[in-house]
Simulated assay, not measured.
Amino acid sequence: MTIDSSIVEELDDVSRPTEAPDTAAFAAASQKRKQQRPGRKLLFLRNSKAITGLVIIGFFTLIAIIGPWIAPYDPSAQSDDLLQPPSWEHWMGTTHLGQDIFSQLIIGTRGVMVVGFVAGILATAIGVIVGVTAGYVGGMGDESLSALSNVFLVIPQLPLIIIIAGQLPSVGGLTVAVVIAVTGWAWGARVLRAQTLSLRRRDFVEAARASGERSWRIITAEIMPNLTAIIASGFVGTVTFAVLSLITLAFIGIGSGGDWNWGTILFWAQSQLALQRGAWWWFIPAGLCIALLGMGLTLINFGIDEFVNPRLRSTGMNARKLRKRGIRPRIGFTPVAAPVAAPVGSGAGRTTKGERA
């Protein structure tokens, strides 16, 4: 009995061991892909909004740190230059008592930044503890903590801050920060509770619970990393609210008169009728600093949103490339091809509703 040679060749091919893949070529291709996508691990820092916001916040933080050393005058020192406009001697003019406004602005930056960040850190910590705990434990604990959050949520925050600060014997920067933190944590706690409720029944959390992991280990290692972007966004919003609350309290005269901040400058400008006197240099610089700081915090918040949302991230990070291809990037929408100019009366260059990138 003879066996066909073709069958023998096929059997040899099947029995022959397969060659191992070229690991060196695979590693080289992987390295090449990584080189083509530089800074992949720093996607947040590639966002133009986030970079602009961080630069603004970093500038004010630097001024807050070195302010007492670079201020040309004592902010409370009086002189004979009464209500003078900006000059080489006084870059931002003087007050009705001859005080240098530029020095007041620099020294006041520290109070604003300290209160904003201290209140933001404390309020965020309270919100994380209450919100995550309520969402994870459930039952009576969830109902109790949720009721506490609802109480603070429906109370008007600013009037409550004014009442508490007005009853205290001495109101300093840290006191105002603590009062703002105690009254401003409820909204963040509610958001974190809702997100924790959706995460505690996920497969990876159930697997960690089935494997015998402790509750604190599940919360810190499984749930908290998925809440990082929400916590960061809440922190930025709390800092913004704390800064505006501090300036509002100082503007209406609640606070220590010896602690300079931008609200204190506006308070004295308003009480001395700077607008009627035409002393624009007394209130415009402080107002611009408040607006610039708020813009920096808002840009960071926008950057966080675009970083955590894949649709916003892809459009925002590739906006320049899309424009080069003639596509108009629209954050939150599908990029649409830009219309091409065409001679009058011709049908060329028109885009229809269905044209997408």
Rank of each mutant, 00 (worst) to 15 (best):
M1D: 05
D4G: 04
V8I: 14
E9Q: 11
D12Q: 06
R16K: 10
T18C: 00
A20F: 07
A20Q: 12
A25P: 05
S30K: 15
K32H: 15
K34P: 00
Q36T: 01
P38R: 07
L42S: 12
N47W: 06
L54T: 09
I56C: 08
I56H: 05
I56Y: 04
G58K: 05
A64I: 06
I70P: 11
I70R: 07
A71H: 05
D74H: 05
S76E: 03
S79G: 06
S79T: 08
L82V: 11
L82E: 03
L83H: 05
S87V: 00
W91C: 00
G93S: 02
T95A: 12
G98L: 00
G98D: 01
G98H: 05
G98Y: 03
D100P: 04
Q104E: 12
L105S: 11
G108T: 00
G108I: 09
V112C: 09
M113R: 03
V115K: 01
G120A: 13
A123K: 07
A125R: 08
G127L: 06
V128W: 08
A134W: 07
A134I: 11
G139R: 09
S144W: 15
S146M: 15
A147V: 12
L148C: 14
L148V: 13
S149I: 09
N150E: 06
V151D: 09
V151S: 08
L153I: 02
P156R: 07
P159V: 02
L160M: 12
I161P: 08
I163F: 11
I163S: 12
G166V: 02
L168K: 10
S170G: 01
G173L: 12
G173V: 10
V176M: 04
V179C: 05
I180T: 09
V182N: 09
G184W: 13
G184I: 14
A186K: 01
W187K: 13
G188T: 13
L192S: 05
R193S: 07
R193N: 05
A210S: 10
R214W: 11
W216E: 04
R217H: 07
I219R: 02
T220Y: 09
E222P: 05
I223E: 02
L227P: 04
A229D: 11
S233G: 12
S233P: 04
G237I: 03
T238N: 13
V239Y: 13
L246F: 07
L246V: 10
T248F: 15
I252W: 05
I252K: 06
G258K: 04
W260A: 00
L266Q: 08
S271T: 15
L275C: 02
Q276F: 15
A279Y: 03
W280P: 00
W280M: 01
W280F: 10
W282C: 00
I284T: 10
P285H: 06
P285V: 02
P285G: 01
G287C: 05
L288D: 02
L288P: 01
C289R: 11
L297N: 14
I300R: 12
G303N: 01
D305I: 03
F307L: 11
N309S: 12
R311I: 01
M317I: 11
A319Y: 03
R320S: 14
K321R: 14
G326N: 15
G332W: 00
V336W: 06
A337Q: 13
A338Q: 09
V340K: 15
V344T: 06
A348D: 14
R350P: 04
R350L: 15
R350D: 10
G354F: 10
E355W: 07
